[in-house]
Simulated scan of single mutants.
Amino acid sequence: MKQRIGYAAGAFDLFHVGHLNLLRHARMQCDFLIAGVVADELLVEAKGRPPVIPLAERLEIVRSIEYVDEAIAEVLPSKVETWQSHPFDVFFKGDDWRGTPKGQRLEQDFAAVGVDVVYFPYTMHTSSTALRRTLELLNSEHHEKSTRHSLP
């Protein structure tokens, strides 16, 4: 019987329980799970800002998760191009993509090459964006306090 290979892509920046949930659920639906950790340059292109954690460290973190069989740097702009270099049977994504133009394009592109797209519930209470905002807020408060204390 053919092994079912899955692929879960993400920034995996400021790794949190939502990332863990995605990888855990993905691994339950395949025999071998590849995690694609999106390169810094692609994140800047897509989100307009660099990740907090550099690619090499994000790869090391994701590679050490027990649900992940292989972690690769996702350096190609197209998921189908990534599939061509690392073939897989099913692509896993958070359901915040379901029904969006990006999600629909992903489904069409993968349907053309016989790859299923499976969505998992997005972890609403935790996100890297929320963590980043909190860090920025804490940093600005710290900067403001240190500036006040250093005034003559």
Rank of each mutant, 00 (worst) to 15 (best):
M1S: 08
I5T: 15
G6H: 13
Y7F: 15
A9R: 10
A9W: 06
G10S: 06
G10L: 07
F12E: 02
F12D: 01
F12R: 01
D13Q: 07
L14C: 04
F15K: 00
L22Q: 08
A26D: 10
A26H: 10
A26E: 10
Q29M: 15
Q29G: 09
Q29S: 14
C30Y: 12
C30A: 13
C30N: 12
F32C: 11
L33G: 10
I34W: 11
I34Q: 06
V37S: 02
V37E: 05
V38P: 01
D40E: 13
E41D: 14
L43V: 10
V44M: 13
V44Y: 13
V44S: 04
A46F: 09
A46Y: 13
P51W: 03
P51F: 03
P51K: 03
I53S: 01
L55Q: 09
R58M: 00
L59A: 02
E60Y: 02
I61R: 03
I65A: 05
Y67T: 07
Y67S: 14
V75D: 11
K79H: 14
V80C: 09
H86F: 15
P87I: 15
P87G: 14
D89I: 13
V90F: 05
V90Y: 05
K93S: 13
K93Y: 03
R98H: 11
G99N: 06
G99P: 04
T100E: 05
G103K: 12
L106V: 02
D109L: 14
A111T: 09
V113Y: 11
G114K: 03
V115T: 01
V115Q: 01
V117F: 05
Y119R: 08
Y119T: 04
F120E: 01
F120R: 01
F120A: 01
Y122N: 07
T123I: 09
H125P: 00
T126R: 15
S127R: 09
S128T: 15
T129Y: 09
T129S: 15
T129E: 09
R133M: 12
E136N: 06
L138V: 13
L138Y: 10
N139Y: 07
H142W: 06
K145W: 09
S146T: 12
S146R: 12
T147N: 02
R148G: 00
R148C: 00
S150F: 03
P152D: 11
